[in-house]
Design a protein around this nucleic acid. Structure first.
Lengths: 261, 261
DNA sequence: ATCGATAATTTGTTCGAACATCCTTGCGAT
DNA sequence: ATCGCAAGGATGTTCGAACAAATTATCGAT
């Protein structure tokens, strides 16, 4: 059985900055098993350690994560509303599937909403916003893109910093709802990105271009050039989407042909 | 076998549509207590029968709804992700509060997203879409606006038809994600609307104007006049928001039940 | 051998009780 | 009287077992 379950079990407080959608602002020790397992499942879902379509059996999860089924039900219920898992009465939970149409929908809306949020952030952002962008960009650029996909920790680290950078761009947007939606879309897109990263031929040119785009967006945002910033951001998203879609079709084909797991 | 990558993702809005999947006796057995209580709580949350800020104690809910705490936890967990309920570890669940800033945010984004969705629907809608709009409009116009707020059933009926009409306008939009977000915002706005409806001086002129707007939007949409349709829809939303805000301040003042604004 | 029905097993659902934490109350000291 | 602290009650959390539905396996008939 592929070790999709034995992911880092450190009881370290869930640094929920890994996800754009902030989970719990107030950080007390008010943590419960249900909250914890929710964060862990969420991470594993987005990272793709739990495969799309896979059944999430209670006994299995209980053994893998070392928690009872009561906290599990709680966590899975929330993940249903997060659209990360599906539920059918008396038939249990499954990992939400991926689909090309969903990917298209997701990306189109993400581009639109993120650019919208970026515009608002540029209009209202203060010095702290600018500083945070530069800090996040610096941290991102300092993180080498892991050449081995097997290196989960490195991938997680890069994804987290990438997420954080994109979040910093729009953080000054004055609409919590818009931020929430952008976060949800970002999380879901990450699922696709990480599902296909296995075959991502890390073309030097592509990486170079992506880095360039990050820097350009940051600079344009801080220079309050909304037109340029949103244009580059949209271009950046479009580029990512195209790469993901290209690889997605490849992965999808190879999965359909190969043995089912 | 088709892989899990090719299955569609349906962002079903069935739960928030008040009527369709209610407790139908005997036919669909795929329902569980958790699902049922989720729908009921959701309805009561949106209808305002559960007051903003109110603590949701398990014993209390268990007695009131006649279910155990296991299904309750499941339902409440989902409602947390729906933003209708708040949760603090070891301190229980509370009804999500209302606030003026949230109301503003909500409405601004709803207008934007709904108009966006309406544009897409107008561009892609077919005859069935047109027919459904007319049907929903007819049913809405046939429903008298209840003069007594005490008449829950009548209010529910009107709200449901109103919801259905607005949904029918954008249903042909090809973006499940956008529809999902519009639905969430619509549900949350309904919470505000119904919270303040108690003092809504049902001005004849206002009602007349609202009806007019509904009809105009429907006609413009079917005539594929996107500019006019979105303009009227935005105006319609703006009008609702203003009424709600005016009454909200009144209610907020009279209650002065310390809610954070 | 295929089909259909039924038995056996697995899996999801719900409940009740044990446990931990939070909040209130009551007591005593300053 | 106020503050701090401890005891008690209320509430949230988690587990294990009983229950119900669904899936798989088994068997007999055509």
């Amino acid at each position: 059985m592929p070790s999709a379950y034995d992911q880092g079990t450190s009881l370290s407080r869930a640094e929920s900055a890994v996800s754009l959608s902030s989970v719990a602002p107030g950080d007390d020790d008010a943590t419960t098993l249900g909250i914890e397992i929710y964060a862990r499942l969420r991470r594993d879902l987005i990272a793709g350690h739990l495969k799309p379509g896979e059944r999430l059996r209670f006994r299995q999860l209980s053994a893998a994560y070392g928690v009872g089924i009561a906290p599990l039900r709680e966590a899975l219920s929330r993940l249903v509303s997060d659209q990360l898992v599906r539920f059918e009465g008396h038939r249990g939970y499954t990992v939400a599937p991926l689909s090309l149409s969903d990917l298209h929908d997701l990306c189109a809306l993400r581009t639109e909403l993120s650019c919208n949020a970026l515009r608002r952030a540029i209009a209202r952002g203060d010095e702290d916003w600018e500083a945070e962008i530069l800090a996040a960009l610096h941290r991102l650029e300092r993180t080498p893109l892991p050449h081995s996909v097997e290196d989960r920790k490195a991938v997680d680290e890069w994804e987290q910093r990438h997420d954080r950078f994109h979040y910093s761009l729009i953080a000054a947007c004055d609409s919590p709802w818009l931020l929430h939606f952008c976060g949800a879309l970002s999380d879901h897109f990450q699922r696709y990105r990480r599902a296909v990263i296995v075959v991502t031929s890390s073309s030097e040119a592509l990486l170079k271009r992506v880095r360039e785009q990050h820097r350009t967006v940051a600079e344009a945002a801080i220079a309050r050039d909304a037109e340029r910033a949103t244009a580059v951001l949209a271009e950046h998203f479009q580029g990512s989407v195209e790469v993901v879609i290209r690889n997605y079709e490849e992965v999808s084909r190879s999965l359909s042909a190969g043995n089912g797991d």
